[in-house]
Nucleic acid binder design. Structure first.
Lengths: 347, 347
DNA sequence: GACTGGCACTCCAACCAGTCGAGTGCTAGA
DNA sequence: TCTAGCACTCGACTGGTTGGAGTGCCAGTC
C-alpha cells in the first residue's frame, strides 16, 4: 500500500526528473525536498514504488525514473494545477487581442499554446455554426465537375466537388439561381430539406443535374464536427531532447495525416478540472507511445471542440495542464460561448 | 587547370559520397569507377581538387567529400539529368489521375514530389486567375469588422477582413447588393475601377461604409502572385541523417514561417533545362546553409509559379532534378498551360 | 611530363583495463 | 518502523594500445 510519504517520494522523483532529465537517486531526493528521513528510508520506499510499477531503473545502481503508470498517479493524485503566472496571463491577453474571425482566433491560439508550453500545439476548428446559409456558388471546373461553395452567415466557407452531367455556363447559372432561391436564408438542415423537395418536383433531366449539388450541400451541412485542425510549434519538437529523437518522425507523420491528430484529440473526456491527459502508451496511436497529450475542450457557440499539446512524457504536467486549461477557457470566451465550469484559474 | 580526368574524379567522388555518406578514398574510387589509373594518380588529382576548393577532408588521412563548390561544378558541368524510370513516370500519372480543381492539384503535387524524391516538397499556389468575379459576399463579423469574400469564375475563394463603421444586417445587405451589382462579371481590375467610380458618386456616409470594402477587394485583386504554399513530406526530414540533425529545427521554423519558403522558391531563375539548384550556403536564408533547394517553374493559365524540394546538400542531384522538372511540366500541363521548353523527358 | 609503386606518416575507431563515484540492497540495531 | 553502515554493482571516464584506412611524397619508369 502506498502511504503518504511514498506518494510524496513519487512526486519528488517526477518533479526532479522532469527538471534534470536524469535518473534521480535517494540522496539527491532528501536534499532537494526536505524529506525528514534518511536516504535509506527513501530507498526502501523507492523499491516499493518500483515493485508496484511506478518507477523504474535504467540499470542497477542508477537512480529511478517514473514509468507511465507513475506519471499517471502523479497527474491524478498529486499534481495541483499551478496557477498561471501574471506574465502568462498577460501573454494570452495580448496574443489574442484584436483577433477577428474564426480562422484568426484558431491560428493565434495554436501559436499561443505552442509558445507558452514549448510543445506542439493542436487546435481543432469549432464545428461550423448551424447558422443560416448566406450564399451558394456553383462553379464549373471541368466537363463533369461542379465546385459547390457554401457561405454561411458567420462567414464560414465550405467547398465540395460534385460530379454532375456536363453543363454549359448558362445551365450552371440557372442551377445556381434556383439553388440560391431555395436555400439562402435557411439553416443548412432545412435548406437541404427544401432542396430535396424541389428535386422531387423536377423533371428527370433537371433532377439529374441538381441531385449531386444537393448531395454536396447535404454533406457540408451534415459535417457536424469540424475535421480541420491547425498545428503550431512544430519546430519545438526538435527540442524534445535526444531520448525522443525516435519520436519526431512518427509525430511528423501524424501531423501530416491530420486524421491521427483528430483521433488524438477526439476522445477528450475531461477528467480533471476540464483537462484530459494521456500519458505514453495510453494514447492508442502506437508510434506515439512515448509522448503525452494534454488536451481540453473549449466551447464555441456551435458546440465544443478540442485543443491541446503533444510533448514528451517527461513534461511539466502541472504547468502544461494549467496553460491548456486557461487557453481553452479564454478561447471559449472569445468564440462567444460560456465554459461550463467555473473560472478558478483566475485568482 | 582541371582536365577531363579531374572532372571525372570529382564526379565520382560526388556519386560515391552521395551513396555511401562516407568520405571516399582513392582506392575505393578506382575500384568502383574503372578509372584506368592507379590510386596514387587519383590522389594527386584529389589534392589539386582540394586546393581549388572542390573537395575537402574532414581530417587528414580521411577520404574526401565534396564542398558546396564541388557540388556546384558537378551540377553545372557533370550532371546529366537522368531520364525518369518507367515506374516514376507511371507514379506521376496515377497520382495526378482524377485531380480536380487547383487545391487538389497542388496538394497532390506536394505529396507526389515528396514521395518521389524522399525529401521535403514545396509547391507554390499559382497566382489567382484574372478571371471575372462571380460573387462577392459581405459578412458582419463584429461591430467594426466586415469579412469580404470574393469568389472568382475559376472557383478560387479569397477572404479579407475590412474595418468598417458599424452597420446592422440590413445595411450590410444593401452594401452587398450594390457591390455585387457593380462588380460581378467583371475582371478584378475593372471591378475595382467601377467600384471606385461608384464610391466617388456616393454621399459621404455611404462612402465611409463602402470604402474599406473596395479597399479589401482591391487588395485581393492586386495580389498578382500567390503567397500561399503547400508543403509535403515533412516526415522525410527525419531521415536526412545525423549530420543534418542540426537542420531540422531551422527547417521546421522555415516551414512554419511560410514567407521563408516563398523566398526560397522565389528567385528561381532557371539555369539548366528549367531546373534551378541552390546548394548549401548559396541560398541566402542563413539557417539553411547546409541544405540544397532544387526548384523549377511551372506555368498555370494565370502565369508561372514555383515548386521544388529541400534536402541535404548531399543529395542525388541528377534524379532529383529530373523529378522536379518532370513534375513541374506535368503540373503545368494539368493546370491548362503549355510549358515553354520542349518535352525531352518523354523518351 | 605523366603515371606508378612503395613507404613513412597521420589520425580515427575500436578495444581493453583500471578507476571513480553514484546509487543500490541488505542487515543489524535503535 | 526507521536508520546507519557496508558491500556490491554498474556506468562513465581515462589512458594506452592496436589496426587500418588513407594520405603525401619521392624515386623510378614509360
Amino acid at each position: 500500500m502506498l502511504d503518504d510519504r511514498k506518494l510524496e517520494v513519487l512526486g519528488a522523483v517526477v518533479v526532479d526528473y522532469v527538471q534534470s532529465r536524469e535518473p534521480v537517486g535517494s540522496r539527491a531526493l532528501v536534499e532537494r525536498h526536505r524529506l525528514d528521513v534518511s536516504p535509506a528510508t527513501i530507498r526502501n520506499d523507492m523499491a516499493v514504488l518500483e515493485e508496484d510499477g511506478y518507477l523504474t531503473q535504467p540499470h542497477t545502481s542508477a537512480g529511478r525514473i517514473p514509468t507511465d503508470k507513475g506519471y499517471r498517479l502523479f497527474v491524478d493524485k498529486l499534481a495541483s494545477i499551478k496557477p498561471l503566472s501574471g506574465a502568462e496571463r498577460r501573454a494570452i491577453g495580448s496574443f489574442m487581442q484584436g483577433a477577428v474571425g474564426v480562422d484568426d482566433v484558431v491560428a493565434r491560439t495554436a501559436r499561443l499554446l505552442a509558445q507558452l508550453t514549448h510543445q506542439v500545439a493542436i487546435v481543432q476548428y469549432p464545428a461550423p455554426a448551424p447558422a443560416e446559409l448566406r450564399h451558394i456558388e456553383l462553379v464549373r471546373l471541368t466537363a463533369g465537375h461542379l465546385l459547390v461553395i457554401v457561405i454561411r452567415a458567420t462567414g464560414e466557407v465550405d467547398q465540395r466537388v460534385a460530379e454532375c452531367p456536363d453543363m454549359d455556363e448558362a445551365d450552371v447559372a440557372v442551377l445556381r439561381h434556383s439553388v440560391n432561391g431555395v436555400a439562402t436564408g435557411l439553416t443548412p438542415a432545412s435548406a437541404v430539406l427544401e432542396l430535396r423537395r424541389l428535386l422531387a418536383a423536377l423533371d428527370p433531366a433537371g433532377a439529374r443535374r441538381l441531385a449531386p449539388v444537393v448531395e454536396a450541400i447535404a454533406e457540408i451541412a451534415g459535417a457536424s464536427t469540424s475535421e480541420r485542425v491547425v498545428v503550431g510549434g512544430v519546430p519545438n519538437l526538435a527540442r524534445f531532447g535526444v531520448e525522443y529523437e525516435a519520436m519526431i518522425e512518427p509525430l511528423l507523420e501524424a501531423i501530416e495525416e491530420q486524421v491521427v491528430l483528430l483521433r488524438l484529440l477526439g476522445e477528450s473526456a475531461c477528467d480533471k478540472d476540464g483537462v484530459y491527459v494521456r500519458i505514453g502508451a495510453e494514447n492508442e496511436y502506437g508510434p506515439l507511445r512515448e509522448t503525452s497529450v494534454v488536451s481540453s475542450v473549449y466551447s464555441s457557440d456551435s458546440g465544443p471542440a478540442s485543443l491541446g499539446v503533444v510533448g514528451p512524457t517527461r513534461m511539466d504536467y502541472p504547468s502544461t495542464m494549467a496553460t491548456v486549461r486557461a487557453v481553452a477557457r479564454y478561447v471559449g470566451r472569445f468564440l462567444g460561448a460560456q465554459t461550463a465550469s467555473g473560472g478558478d484559474d483566475e485568482h
